[in-house]
């Protein structure tokens, strides 16, 4: 099929940036979206033009490295990651607009590549169980009801891609943060520190400049892993419980 692409090009963080149009022909509907961009980049390189820079690695929907705001939707029209999006979701003659994630906490590095290290710093602020290697109990010592384990797993599948932030008009990171808080709060291993964890992670999220949550649900609707809004509710509970509690945490 033949396509017109409107791609955001920006040389570096201080460059103003702008859209550039490209036309592509002979795209097969079996290609993945990123393979379509590979074709564009091979074309550009052959002509001596700088290829379009975008992040990607696993191309299996699991590493969370790919991003892209496609026709006004993070990861494009289907609820998957961009690397799992296939060209059969588009029609011959379509015009496709491709932008980076837009959020002040995800500054643009070049073209479609953004800096998501704020997510790492949020995890560093408390997204773990404080155990050292060795000296832990046998894995079967604490039974965990299957439904609890499954629920924790559902929260744990977040890939840290940042689509939730890109989808939100306030650029809130609540879905990402709440998924980690929920996973650990549900499991006996993580419960011990749950209050302090919620406080610290929320504080870090605010420090990074992410916006407030106004419950529009856009994040969960665009999340490629289907992380549920109930995570945000649980996080709010943990957070308020923490602020009321006088215990040391």
């Amino acid at each position: 099929m033949n396509l017109t692409l409107k791609v955001w090009r920006q040389k570096n963080p201080s460059d103003k940036g702008g859209f550039k149009d490209y036309t592509l022909s002979g795209i097969s509907s079996d290609m993945s979206f990123l393979e379509m961009l590979d074709v564009l980049n091979e074309d550009l390189s052959e002509k001596g033009d700088d290829p379009v820079h975008f992040d990607h690695d696993c191309r299996e929907g699991i590493c969370g490295m790919c991003s892209l705001y496609i026709n006004g939707q993070p990861h494009g029209p289907t609820q998957t990651t961009t690397c799992q999006l296939h060209m059969r979701s588009f029609k011959d003659g379509d015009t496709i607009t491709i932008e980076p994630w837009r959020a002040s906490s995800f500054p643009i590095i070049k073209d479609l590549v953004v800096d998501r290290s704020s997510f790492d710093r949020i995890i560093q602020s408390g997204g773990y169980v404080s155990v050292n290697t060795g000296g832990v109990p046998d894995a079967n010592e604490i039974p965990i009801p299957k439904i609890i384990a499954d629920e924790a797993f559902d929260s744990a599948t977040c890939i840290g891609c940042g689509a939730c932030v890109a989808a939100c008009k306030n650029a809130s990171a609540m879905l990402f943060v709440s998924a980690k808080i929920s996973q650990l709060a549900l499991l006996p291993q993580g419960k011990v520190e749950k209050r302090g964890r919620a406080e610290k992670m929320v504080a870090q999220m605010d420090d990074e400049g992410f916006g407030a949550c106004t419950n529009t649900g856009a994040c969960s609707a665009e999340c490629p892993k289907g992380i549920d809004l109930s995570n945000i509710a649980r996080m709010n509970r943990e957070y308020f419980a923490a602020s009321l509690s006088t215990e040391e945490h």
Binding site: Y128, V129, V131, T133, G134, V136, P137, D138, A139, N140, P143, I144, P145, K146, A149, D150, A152, F153, A156, Q183, L184, L187, Q189, G190
Partner: peptide, 17 residues
């Protein structure tokens, strides 16, 4: 043992093991 202590949500049976 280590991974469970970190909060890795491995698959479980109905009995919780």
């Amino acid at each position: 043992d280590q991974c469970v202590a970190q909060g890795v949500p491995f698959a479980r049976e109905y009995g919780g093991l």
